[in-house]
């Protein structure tokens, strides 16, 4: 009986997360177009619905009904399965992310986390990196030089940022002494002053930079940047397969925003009078906005510059940070 309840609860939670995050990802595309438009003195979508809000529905219909073209010489099974990897890994990663504080619904305490595993952060980062297989396989299976270049750049990117993500997060983990995201959150219970961003500013900045690289956002959008590789790995994709990549990308953005908020900015602990659930929503909204903001303002870097940045600048800084943290802790 007890096991059955857990299974049902988990399934309900999984479906809720899937639905809500997919909806948020779709809405984020609208927000992105609007914010970018305002920053570039344009209006953005205006015609479908009031201020273009129904553009989402229009885009959805378009993506679902578009012809799904599989290029003749592509390696078809891989070409077809590659787009699924992106959202699948992004959503799997969310299983270990606690979204909200516990709350009580009809006298039943709900933990808004699908699986509270004790290596949560490791799981999230690992699975999110598996998502890099999507552009890699997509680029290699579609017989297209732009796509191949995009795939090659994917590998470069993975090799560059992954080391920074891991090392930068090590220092805060040393202070907390646990890999569970709930423990990390609870460590910062004591209000704004106890946020890890104050104690580990360097790790915070490094993790943010690596997060931008992980989600392929400007300034590290080199695997699909139009001016160089047309559309990178997604050049040959059309219709919903193309759409899946972008659901994955936006889901990843949301995951990274949650991670940064939980690890460095006090997670879902209440701030003054703002309840915890609202606080974390505000935080991730800010980070999503930051992603768009940076996209509007900054140029993107070349692949060699990314490698240079990650290996020669960020990694030494991360190591230094670990060293300093170690000395202070001892």
């Amino acid at each position: 009986m007890g096991e059955m309840a857990i299974v049902i609860e988990t399934v309900i939670k999984a479906i809720t997360v899937l639905a809500v995050v997919a909806g948020m990802a779709a809405f984020a595309t609208y927000i992105e177009r609007k914010v970018l438009a305002f920053m570039q003195r344009r209006l953005g979508p205006m015609h479908v619905g009031p201020h273009g809000i129904l553009q989402l529905a229009a885009d959805g219909i378009k993506l679902f009904t578009k012809e799904d073209i599989v290029p003749q010489n592509s390696i078809k099974p891989i070409f077809k399965i590659a787009p699924v990897i992106a959202p699948a890994s992004a959503f799997t990663a969310m299983a270990a992310v606690p979204f909200f504080p516990e709350f009580t619904l009809f006298g039943y305490t709900v933990h808004p986390i699908i699986a509270d595993i004790n290596v949560g952060i490791l799981f999230v980062m690992g699975v999110a990196s598996v998502g890099m297989y999507a552009p890699l396989l997509a680029g290699m299976s579609s017989v297209n030089k732009w796509a191949l270049l995009g795939a090659a750049r994917t590998v470069i990117q993975l090799l560059s940022f992954e080391v920074v993500t891991g090392l930068s997060i090590l220092a805060p983990l040393m202070m907390i002494g646990s890999l569970s995201l709930i423990d990390i959150n609870d460590y910062q219970m004591g209000g704004v002053g106890s946020w890890l961003a104050w104690k580990q500013p360097l790790a915070f900045v490094l993790f943010m930079i690596a997060g931008f690289a992980e989600t392929n956002r400007t300034p590290f959008d080199l695997i699909e940047v139009e001016s160089e590789v047309v559309s990178g790995y997604a050049t040959d994709y059309s219709g919903m397969r193309w759409g899946l990549f972008f659901v994955g990308e936006y889901a990843n953005m949301i995951t990274v925003s949650f991670l940064v908020s939980i690890i460095f900015l006090g997670g879902y602990n209440p701030i003054w009078f703002i309840p915890g659930g609202l606080a974390i929503l505000l935080k991730i909204s800010f980070f999503i906005f930051l992603f768009l903001w940076v996209r509007a303002a900054w140029p993107h870097v070349r692949p060699d510059q990314l490698m240079w940045l990650c290996w020669k600048v960020l990694m030494p800084l991360a190591l230094l940070n670990i060293l300093l943290t170690g000395i202070v802790l001892i």
């Binding site: 305002f38 003195r41 344009r42 903001w293 509007a296 303002a297």
Partner: peptide, 18 residues
Amino acid sequence: VGLWIVLREMLKKGNSHT
């Protein structure tokens, strides 16, 4: 400075050239 400039343009009212 780049970040500030785009934010400033976003916050201005009636700033669209469309």
